[in-house]
Design a protein around this nucleic acid. Sequence first.
DNA 1: TATGTAGATCGATGAGCGTCGATCCCGCCG
DNA 2: CGGCGGGATCGACGCTCATCGATCTACATA
Lengths: 116, 116
Amino acid sequence: MTDLRLAPKTKRPAGEPCCEPVVYPDIERAQAERMAEVAKALGDPVRMQLVDVLRKHAGEVCVCELVPLFELSQPTVSHHLKKLRDAGIVGSERRGLWAYYYVEPEALEELAAWLG
Amino acid sequence: MTDLRLAPKTKRPAGEPCCEPVVYPDIERAQAERMAEVAKALGDPVRMQLVDVLRKHAGEVCVCELVPLFELSQPTVSHHLKKLRDAGIVGSERRGLWAYYYVEPEALEELAAWLG
DNA sequence: TATGTAGATCGATGAGCGTCGATCCCGCCG
DNA sequence: CGGCGGGATCGACGCTCATCGATCTACATA
């Protein structure tokens, strides 16, 4: 682990960076992009509650049960569910008239592991 | 744990909701808003990498070391650091010309616990 | 005091987001 | 076949965001 606590020297030749360059492997970038995509999908109170309900019920839930949980129109809830599906956090299945959503459990694992 | 897997009955009296109402304590809402705020701040690859660097170095890091890690202008990196500070994820301290940032360890605890 | 430097702030710009009503699609049932 | 109802999609609106160059503030040093 590199120690970055050193204060950079002032009065340095022009054109040089102000500090020792920190080695920063680009491997991190792909992981950061994946985790940021998941975090972004969770970065809305409605979607956070949707995932929370789906997780707590440990099975599939009908959309017609999710809509009345919020004071929002049905297209808005559908839009949030689509966001979660695009991020890979939830999956859906249509059976007859109804659509059922469920959590995709592996989707949150990387972020959870990173958060420790 | 309520079982939501039951399909709602069709052919119901008009005006009634389509399903049994799910008890949904409003206590969740405040927590969802707090966690969504944190997740939103993490929902950008640059900020995710910033937090990752700060966490891995387990101490304070000078801004002049953070800026060259990204192909971004200094004001943009400063903007991202402000977002993280507003969300309570990082703190900062100025010493002389330089500013140092560090992770606020409690900020991620609630989200980490929720993710399991 | 004057100059240079680190970092924050400002203003603008273009892209994206959350929300809604209206509409479309497609199974269901009389 | 025809109508209904659940859910997804569309188009629009207002707001937020990420990014930049320019500027501002505060400190350090000559």
